[in-house]
C-alpha cells in the first residue's frame, strides 16, 4: 500500500513539473500575444493596458500559481483568437476526441485479443504466419497514410462512407458509424502490436511448468489456455494497452485533421497555426494529465493482476 501512495505522490510531482514546463514554454515565447490581438498599429498605452488585463506584467512565479489554481478550478484562460474562455471552446471538442479514442481502443481490444490467442494457439500455423507478416507491414504504415487509404477505399472506391463529420446530434448510431472509419486508421498499427505482444506472451507462458501441471490434471488445451494461461499472459498486455491510450490520442490528432473531425487534435493544430497559446497550453496540460493518469492506471492494473506484486 505504501508503494501505491509513493507512486501517487510521484505522479503529482510529475504533473506539477509538466504544468510548470507547459507554463514556462508558452510564457517565454518570443512573440508577444498583444501584437497579434491588437494588430500592428496599437499604441504603447493600449499594449500596456492589455498586458495588465492579461496579467502579463506580474512576476513569473505569481503568474504560474495564479494560472495553476485557475486551471485546477477549471478556468483554462481566454483564447486570444476567439476571445472566449478556453474551457468553453474545448468542451464540445473533448466529446469528439473521446469518442474517437474510445472507439479506437475498443477496436484494438476486440480484434487483437482473439487474433493473438488464435495465433499463439496454433504456433506457426497459417493464421500465425499471416498475422505476423500482416502485422509487420501494418506497423510500418503511419496513421495518416492509413487514413488516406481508408478514405480512398471506403469513400472514393466503395462509396460506403461520406467524408462529412456526423455529430452525435444527428443520431448516435450514425455518429459511431462515421467514426468507425477514422478509428480503423487509428487502431490498425496498435492492433498489430497488441497481437504480436499477446502472441509472444502466451507462447512464453505455455512454456512454463504450471502449464504442464494443468495438462497433468486432464485439462484440454483450450481449458489450459483460458483458465490457466490467459491471466498470466494478459499482465503485460493490459499494461501495454493502458500505456497505449496516449499514443491513440496522439494518432487521433492527425486523423482528426484528415477526416475533419472537430476534436482536440484539430483544435491543437489550428491553435498552433494561429499562435493561440492559451488553447495550446490547455490541450498540452490535458494531454499530460492523460499520459500521467494512464501510466498510473497501468501500474494499478499490474498490481491488481499479479498477486506477487499486489500484496506489497
Amino acid at each position: 500500500m505504501t508503494a501505491f501512495f509513493k507512486r501517487l505522490a510521484l505522479l503529482l510531482v510529475t504533473m506539477l513539473l509538466v504544468t510548470a514546463l507547459a507554463f514556462a514554454a508558452f510564457t517565454v515565447i518570443p512573440a508577444d500575444p498583444t501584437a497579434s490581438i491588437l494588430g500592428m498599429n496599437a499604441t504603447e498605452e493600449q499594449i500596456a493596458a492589455l498586458r495588465a488585463k492579461l496579467g502579463l506584467d506580474l512576476p513569473l512565479w505569481q503568474r504560474y500559481t495564479t494560472w495553476l489554481t485557475d486551471f485546477v478550478r477549471g478556468n483554462f484562460g481566454t483564447s486570444y483568437r476567439f476571445s472566449m474562455p478556453v474551457e468553453d471552446l474545448l468542451r464540445p471538442r473533448v466529446e469528439a476526441t473521446l469518442a474517437l479514442t474510445g472507439l479506437s481502443f475498443l477496436l484494438i481490444v476486440a480484434v487483437s485479443l482473439p487474433l493473438g490467442l488464435l495465433a499463439a494457439h496454433k504456433e506457426d500455423g497459417l493464421l500465425d504466419r499471416l498475422v505476423t507478416v500482416c502485422g509487420q507491414v501494418t506497423m510500418s504504415i503511419p496513421n495518416f497514410i492509413l487514413g488516406i487509404g481508408v478514405i480512398w477505399l471506403f469513400a472514393l472506391i466503395l462509396g460506403v462512407f461520406q467524408q462529412k463529420y456526423v455529430p452525435p446530434e444527428d443520431g448516435l448510431w450514425a455518429h459511431i458509424r462515421y467514426l468507425l472509419f477514422p478509428a480503423l486508421a487509428v487502431a490498425l498499427p496498435k492492433t498489430a502490436m497488441t497481437v504480436r505482444l499477446l502472441r509472444g506472451s502466451v507462447l512464453g507462458e505455455l512454456r512454463q511448468d504450471y502449464v504442464r501441471t494443468a495438462y497433468s490434471k486432464g485439462n484440454a488445451p483450450r481449458a489450459v489456455l483460458v483458465f490457466h494461461v490467459l491471466r498470466n499472459a494478459m499482465i503485460p498486455v493490459v499494461t501495454f494497452l493502458a500505456m497505449t491510450i496516449p499514443d491513440i490520442m496522439a494518432a487521433s490528432i492527425v486523423i482528426e485533421q484528415l477526416f475533419g473531425i472537430p476534436g482536440l487534435g484539430q483544435m491543437l493544430i489550428s491553435s498552433i497555426g494561429n499562435r493561440d497559446y492559451p488553447v495550446v497550453q490547455a490541450i498540452v496540460v490535458i494531454a499530460a494529465f492523460v499520459v500521467v493518469a494512464c501510466s498510473f492506471l497501468a501500474d494499478l492494473l499490474y498490481r491488481l493482476m499479479d498477486p506477487r506484486i499486489g500484496g506489497r
Partner: peptide, 16 residues
C-alpha cells in the same frame, strides 16, 4: 493417475 513435479516454485500457477 496424477503427478507431482520437482519444482514446487514453478509448477504452481502464480496468479491462481
Amino acid at each position: 493417475i496424477s503427478i507431482v513435479f520437482q519444482e514446487p516454485m514453478t509448477s504452481l500457477n502464480p496468479t491462481m
